[in-house]
Amino acid sequence: MTDESVKKPQSTSDKLPGVVSVFTLGLGAIAVYTWREGMRKKTMIGFLVLSLLVIFGAWFLTAFLQTGGAQVDTELDTKLVKDICVTAISIFGVLITIFISASVVPGEVENRIIYTVLSKPVRRFQYLMGKFLGVQLIIIINLALMGGLFFVNLYIQEGILPTLLLWTIFLTYFEFLIVSAFTFAIGCAASSAVLPVIGGLFIYITGNLTEYLGDVARRAGQTEAFLDVAIGWLATGLYNVLPNLQNFSLRNQLLYLQPNDPPADAMIPQMVVYGLLYAAAGYVIGYIIFRRKEL
């Protein structure tokens, strides 16, 4: 080997920008890539198309009722449309949230893209943050599409801008954010998407039953039997740890109030903080799991 060959040559890597720039550029690239990839997933497209069909179908249903010569009760029709659409957004929205959040990390381990990404100057924190932001982009776009169609539907029916629907969609996003963060955290530990999907469904269902858990916690322990006490402890633990997703629901207000009424008794800023704190906790748990994960 000659002396020339051992000289450190100048290369592009010597001229690369600073750490902050690398961090933000990398973060953005991962987030956009995750979004682009996620929007092409067949499961996601399937759920989105179904939800849009249901929302669109509800519109047709009321139009049919009105033109079919039946006794028209406009208020009842509108309630029916609202009920169908809110249910469709909740069910399909949460399914999209869970399936996407569950699959982004295990999917990349499976197809080995993660090796090429994490061998670059990308921190695991940055990688996870990019993936998480990409997932949020997908959830927001889906919610916007579903909510947008519902909004137009309602506006045409009632002739009033349904601002209450916007608040409903806004709070629904924070509900999905919590479900997404914990599903994502489970996905960081799993080698396939199956376990995180189950975990995500568990969080969504129990999160919506938290009030009942509170009741169980209050009632249990009265007989002092072991099983009774154990159930009381479990219910108390779950009640204290799990998020109360019912707090994010404006469903009844949307059904019974005027479309342009402001949300009543809803502490929206507090709910946003509540959602962000739970989401942060979910993300941190995911990072702690992923930080030393062997790939």
Binding site: L16, P17, S21, V22, L25, G26, G28, A29, K120, V122
Partner: peptide, 10 residues
């Protein structure tokens, strides 16, 4: 382009 951005290239 994706991998280049991970190195901070732009």
């Amino acid at each position: 382009r994706f991998y280049g951005k991970l190195y901070g290239l732009r």
